[in-house]
Write a protein that binds this DNA or RNA. Structure first.
Length: 313
DNA sequence: ATGGTTTTTACTGCGTC
DNA sequence: GACGCGGTAAAAACCAT
């Protein structure tokens, strides 16, 4: 799945739109140039040190798998071996053996002993499941896990619906990571009503994440829309340009970004002779045709769009 | 709870293929 | 006639207060 070219750049395809992801192996970040999907390069890919020379290369060996916030114990455990030998391979004497047996028993009891821990591991696995079914990158799952941890620590999650909390944390994680998934999509993935997820989301936003996290920009929505609907990239280019030239509070304030994005895509498709039906654009943006029309009207009322005929564009 | 704003629902009329 | 498009009124949803 992962290819690494000589220049140290990872390449793979975007799970959202299928386009090539490009990124920097050292930063460990992969970005989709079209829809803005961000993920991380696999952390297990070799030693984490960059060897300066051969000697150093031999010295630096990485041990263990990477820690992850998505497991309740961060993926860090120590097993007491069942072989009953010491570190030199010799068998243990009976007294030692008995005490090791005791320790093993206690270790297994302690591992997920408290109800909080058990609840945490339950929710974290649900978060992972939800992220998986929504095709979200790992960093979103990690962020969601992080959010849930702090909310659990602050007792915000106390006596709340587990499903509602997972959906809310995943949605917040999407926004923090700049991955454009709507509340609707996350709610649908969790099999919940949009309204109830919104309630939990506000709760988490108020009590856990104190600073306001802006929703994805109109441009993100445009890219997503274009990729989902498999529209000509030229349309995307023009739509992005239009949105940048006309990003005015007059037409954008208070409006659903998805509707605005749909309008830009629709206008661009008309201008380029593609002429996608409003119906289709609206459907992919999950808004109504009426909304698309209203946004279009507002854009056209406030701006004069003239087509410039030039060789490059 | 409430009021202002935005979105949706539902319906109509127009032009074109 | 079916389809895409533009518009409107009223209901519903949303959001800040």
């Amino acid at each position: 799945m992962w290819e690494k070219s000589e220049d140290g750049v990872f390449r793979t395809s975007c799970p959202v739109c299928g386009n090539r992801l490009i990124g920097d192996a050292e930063k460990g970040e992969l970005v989709c140039p079209t829809c803005g999907y961000v993920t991380f390069a696999p952390a297990d890919e070799g030693p984490e040190w960059k060897a300066m020379d051969l000697e150093e290369k031999n010295k630096r060996v990485r041990v263990g798998s990477p820690t992850t916030l998505a497991l309740h114990d961060l993926g860090l455990t120590t097993e007491i071996s069942a072989t009953m030998r010491d570190s030199h391979g010799k068998y243990l004497d009976p007294a030692m053996r008995a005490s090791v047996e005791k320790m093993k028993k206690w270790q297994s009891r302690i591992r997920t002993i408290s109800s909080e821990e058990r609840g945490l591991s339950n929710v974290l696995s649900r978060i992972s499941e939800l992220c998986e079914s929504l095709n979200l990158p790992h960093n979103v799952a990690e962020t969601a896990a992080q959010i849930y941890r702090t909310s659990a620590r602050m007792k915000v999650a106390k006596s709340k619906s587990i499903l509602g909390m997972t959906a809310a944390t995943v949605y917040l994680a999407c926004r923090k990571c700049g991955v454009s998934r709507t509340l609707k999509e996350v709610a649908r993935g969790a099999g919940l009503e949009k309204g109830s997820v919104a309630r939990y989301f506000r709760l988490v936003l108020k009590d856990v994440e104190k600073t306001y996290v802006p929703p994805p920009s109109v441009e993100k929505y445009i890219s997503k829309l274009v990729n989902m609907a498999k529209i000509d990239p030229r349309v995307e280019h023009l739509a992005l340009m239009l949105s940048r030239k006309t990003n005015d509070s007059k037409i954008s304030s208070g409006k659903a970004p998805a509707g605005l994005a749909a309008a830009y895509v629709y206008l661009s498709s008309v201008m380029l002779g593609e002429h996608l039906p409003q119906r289709e654009v609206a459907e992919f943006a999950e808004v109504t045709e009426v909304t698309v029309r209203n946004r279009c009207r507002e854009i056209l009322d406030n701006y004069v769009i003239r087509q410039e005929v030039s060789g490059s564009d």
